Computed example of a mutant assay.
Amino acid sequence: MSIDIAHIQLRRMSMRLKHPFATSFGTIQDKDFFIIEAIDSAGRTGYGESVAFSSPWYTEETVETNLHMMQDFLIPLLKTNTLEHPDDISRLFAPIRRNNMAKAALEGAVWDLYAKQKGISLAAALGGTRSHVAVGVSIGIQPSTNALLAKIDQYVQAGYKRIKLKIKPGQDIEILTTVRNAFPNIMLMADANSAYTLEDTHHLQQLDELDLLMIEQPLAHDDIIDHATLQTAITTPICLDESIQSLTDVEKAHQLGSCRIINVKSGRVGGLSESKRIHDYCQKHHIPVWCGGMLESGIGRAHNIALASLPQFTLPGDISGSARYWEKDIINPEIVVQDGYVTVPDGPGIGVSIDETALNTYTTEIKSFSMDHKA
Rank of each mutant, 00 (worst) to 15 (best):
A228R: 06
I238C: 06
I244F: 07
Q217L: 13
L212R: 05
D211S: 15
L247K: 00
L247G: 04
L230C: 10
Q245S: 13
I225H: 12
L247C: 08
M214K: 00
M214P: 12
L212T: 09
Q231Y: 07
Q217T: 08
I234Q: 07
L219D: 00
I234F: 03
T235S: 15
T235W: 00
M214T: 13
I238L: 14
S243C: 10
A233R: 10
I234P: 11
T236I: 04
I224A: 06
L230V: 06
A233M: 13
I234W: 01
L213E: 15
M214I: 05
P218A: 08
E216C: 10
L230M: 10
M214A: 15
E242L: 02
D241M: 09
D211M: 12
I224D: 04
L240I: 09
D211C: 12
E242W: 01
H227R: 10
Q245M: 13
A233I: 05
L240H: 06
E216D: 12
A233C: 13
T235F: 00
D241V: 07
S246V: 01
I215E: 01
L212E: 12
H227M: 11
L230N: 03
Q245V: 06
I244M: 04
L219H: 10
Q245I: 04
I234R: 03
T236V: 12
D223I: 07
A233V: 06
I224Y: 09
C239Y: 00
D226T: 14
P218T: 01
I225W: 11
L212Q: 09
T232F: 02
